[in-house]
């Protein structure tokens, strides 16, 4: 077969493959694009309590600017995001180091360490709701047994956000640890040998070698957790429903209530698209950071 004929056959094969895969690709694109386009369209509509719908232009978005609940929800979302992310990254790196160095740790113990993130968030929420119940829960019993004052935990406007952040960190720190552990295992042993020869202490080795080399992995973990944390929903929904008052009313919870409890689907869509833009912004920022710390 001549080269020209072979090229023709290859082109034909490519064309055939493209034609065969086109329906699946189109279907997938439509499945992704339709909900997004539909939500954008809904964001320009207004719905009355009885479900009557009309075109609202940018009214939903201008309402956001003057909506006190939106700004409050944004503040709560950011506070929860920052607090949870810091806790999960710090303790995730620590747990990864423990698992990395404790070579003799039995498999079952390793599995136990990482098991919380395999639990459905609804189950985790229910479990912690019972543990943290100020009257019947184990947490206050333990505090009081140690001579410490009890706490209202999820029922305190002051403590609800730190408590929710702790619950989420309990669940997702092992996930971060697992990612960081993968990063630790891929670090080149030669740099550690060189550090050992130079007499570097364990802390200096961690500070000057491990941490800088791990940074791209940590940023990757931060990106993955950021997406979830900015969309934080299930644990709050189970434990506080945004309360007490509106102390844990994140943007996601607020949007959900506006849409599904008060039936204002148009405004809820505008809220959720704004949240989506925030999530995209955070991911882009972290991606830039990852580029900066890559080695």
């Amino acid at each position: 077969m001549s080269d020209a004929a072979a090229t023709l056959t290859q082109d034909r094969q490519k064309l055939e493959m493209a034609a065969l895969s086109a329906p699946a690709v189109l279907f997938t694109v439509a499945m992704i694009a339709f909900p997004v386009v539909y939500t954008i369209w809904l964001g320009f509509q207004t719905f009355t309590s009885t479900g009557k719908q009309s075109f609202a232009g940018l009214a939903n978005y201008s309402k956001l600017i003057s909506d006190v609940e939106f700004w409050h929800g944004l503040w709560i979302t950011i506070a929860l995001f920052v607090l949870s992310l810091v806790l999960q990254l710090v303790f995730g790196v620590w747990l990864a180091l423990v698992l990395f160095h404790a070579k003799r740790l039995p498999g079952i113990v390793r599995s136990l360490f990482i098991s919380p993130f395999m639990m459905p968030p609804v189950v985790a929420g229910m479990m912690w709701l019972v543990i943290l119940d100020p009257s019947l829960g184990a947490a206050n019993y333990i505090l009081q047994s140690c001579g410490l004052p009890p706490s209202d935990w999820l029922a305190s406007p002051t403590w609800v956000i730190p408590t929710v952040a702790l619950i989420d960190s309990w669940q997702w720190t092992p996930y971060v640890a697992l990612i960081v552990l993968g990063g630790l295992q891929s670090l080149p042993p030669s740099v550690y040998e060189a550090a050992q020869i130079d007499g570097a202490s364990a802390f200096k080795t961690f500070q000057r070698i491990t941490l800088p080399l791990l940074l791209p992995t940590i940023v990757t973990a931060a990106i993955l957790r950021s997406v979830d944390l900015l969309r934080f929903f299930d644990i709050i929904y189970i434990t506080t429903q945004g309360g007490p008052g509106n102390a844990s009313n994140t943007l996601n919870i607020y949007g959900f209530r506006v849409g599904f409890e008060f039936f204002n689907i148009g405004y809820a869509s505008a809220l959720m698209l704004t949240l989506t833009a925030i999530v995209f912004g955070a991911v882009l920022a972290f991606n830039r950071l990852r580029g900066a710390v890559a080695w």
Binding site: D133, P134, S135, L136, P150, D152, W153, L154, A155, S156, T239, T240, G243, P244, G245
Partner: peptide, 18 residues
């Protein structure tokens, strides 16, 4: 009870039943 702002029927029934 402490934390009553999070109380609905589940918590009330559990507290009374106990």
């Amino acid at each position: 009870p402490p934390g009553v702002v999070n109380y609905s029927f589940q918590q009330i029934s559990a507290l009374y039943r106990s």
